[in-house]
């Protein structure tokens, strides 16, 4: 018997594979769905590079436009993720390299963030566990923060695209992720909000 794979990521992979096939056949609807599905991952990869929101907005859009003429050469969901993540990171570095890292975020772009009436900080720190997690994450190295942020947006850690995102050899992503997660667990376990479970 072959080992069982959890159904959810498999379904999702199959779904993305179908969308990719349709998009390559010219379906705009399929391409739209792919954009909706993978833009959050690309956003967080770009943001993990330290660019401000306005720059990331542009970098993510440029990445999708660059995909268009390469679409017919991309054959699998893994290849699609890896391609997108590689390009978004390269684009982010290209922009970030010029040194304009702190362009102010326009006020109205903050206003466009869905707002349920509470202050931003409070939203961020909602829940004691959330607060504890945030405190712990901030104590990790930049490298670990970046890696875990990206891994968190790949449903089942897809080492190839994560490795591409972080410019690491593929084989070291697993162990590095393991080390970063282990550090984070240790930090969390020293906090009452998490150690009680």
């Amino acid at each position: 018997m072959t080992p069982q794979v959890a159904p959810a990521p498999d379904d999702r992979r199959a779904h993305l594979a179908d969308l990719l096939l349709s998009a390559r056949d010219g379906s705009r609807e399929a391409l739209h769905q792919i954009v909706a599905e993978l833009t959050p991952l690309l956003w967080h990869v770009a943001r993990a590079q330290g660019l401000d929101a306005a720059m990331c907005d542009d970098v993510v859009q440029t990445t999708w436009l660059s995909l268009l003429r390469n679409l017919d050469q991309i054959r699998s969901p893994e290849a699609l993720r890896a391609w997108l993540v590689t390009v978004v990171r390269r684009e982010a570095r290209r922009v970030g390299g010029v040194g304009v890292r702190e362009r102010p975020v326009a006020v109205d772009s903050l206003e466009s963030v869905p707002d349920d009436g509470r202050p931003f900080d409070e939203l961020l720190m909602e829940g004691e566990r959330g607060t504890a997690l945030w405190r712990a994450v901030r104590q990790l190295s930049q490298r670990c923060q970046e890696l875990l942020r990206v891994v968190a947006f790949v449903e089942r850690p897809d080492y190839e695209s994560v490795a591409a995102a972080l410019g690491m050899p593929r084989g070291s992503v697993g162990p590095t992720r393991g080390r970063c997660l282990a550090k984070l667990r240790n930090l969390l376990m020293s906090q009452p909000e998490w150690s009680t479970t």
Partner: peptide
């Protein structure tokens, strides 16, 4: 956390 703190615009 990241979704809340830094949502896709």
């Amino acid at each position: 956390l990241y979704r809340r703190a830094d949502p896709v615009p």
